[in-house]
Write a protein that binds this DNA or RNA. Structure first.
Length: 259
DNA sequence: ATGGCGTAACCCTTACGA
């Protein structure tokens, strides 16, 4: 089966591309982030016409995640159990479900904004809660993975220029330690191939010709447990989807499994 | 020449993104 993760930066704005991409790639399970829609606005009917079921956790203008599957969508859990609130509210940043042989999470980790911002502390709390929430499944015998926009570059190799990020979020030791703690539950980073250049960046800022200059970051990650990792036959970043008018600023990460 | 954007919901500007 083919499973993927994609921060679409508004599923409404991306819908024509999304539907065409699902058909052309034959993706079975897609983890979506930044739907930026209300549950009512989510394109459930259009996806059903293509043969996909949807599980949506969204509240409106900001954030929002979904799981889209044509191989089953069972035991849906909306939100991050035990997750922290921001400004008094739980934000829609996680949804999990069983899709055929795989238990999958779609996550949109908080951005953090600036290191001294309350959003940064919230980001670290959120990642700690994620670790607690996934620990049992990560250690289990069923293929399991957390896929999504982690808003952390795991290493300096995951940045077009580490010097450009000094003093900023996404690269701090505390954020990277939070990812390491998540991996300690039994998850490993499924590293995708790059289809061009040497490194598999997944995000390029819209501004300053980020994509043409390949000023990218790898922040969209697939963290799989041992049974999941053992089934991986290929993984790549579909940078073609970042091209042209109407692209998201993130490219999909695609993983093929012998399952 | 050293910057260059896109999105949604609010008004025509702002918040957010990383």
């Amino acid at each position: 089966m083919r499973i993927a993760t994609w921060n679409v930066n508004s599923i409404t704005a991306r819908l024509p591309r999304l539907l065409a991409w699902l058909e052309s790639t034959g993706t079975d399970v897609l983890c979506v982030q930044e739907t930026k829609c209300s549950p009512e606005q989510f394109p459930t009917d259009q996806l059903r016409e293509l043969g996909y079921e949807s599980a949506v956790t969204a509240t409106g203008r900001w954030n929002g995640v979904a799981l889209i599957s044509r191989v089953g969508l069972d035991d849906v859990v909306s939100g991050l159990p035990g997750g922290p609130a921001y400004d008094g509210a739980q934000e829609p940043r996680a949804v999990s479900a069983t899709c055929g042989p795989v238990r999958a999470w779609s996550v949109y980790v908080p951005n953090g904004r600036e290191v001294d911002h309350a959003h940064y502390a919230y980001k670290l709390e959120w990642l700690a809660a994620l670790r607690t929430a996934v620990a049992e499944d990560a250690a289990g015998g069923r293929p399991f993975a957390v896929l999504g926009d982690f808003n952390v570059a795991p290493t300096d190799d995951d940045l077009w220029d580490p010097a450009a990020f000094v003093g900023q979020t996404h690269i701090t030791p505390a954020e990277r330690a939070a990812l390491a703690a998540l991996r300690e539950t039994g998850l490993s980073d499924v590293l995708p191939r790059a289809l061009k250049y040497d490194r598999p960046f997944t995000f390029w800022d819209y501004r300053a010709l980020g994509f043409p200059k390949n000023r990218g970051m790898r922040i969209d990650l697939v963290y799989g447990n041992a049974p999941f990792a053992a089934a991986v036959s290929d993984a790549y970043v579909d940078r073609e989807e970042r091209k042209g008018k109407g692209a998201s600023d993130h490219a999909p990460v695609v993983v093929d499994l012998d399952l």
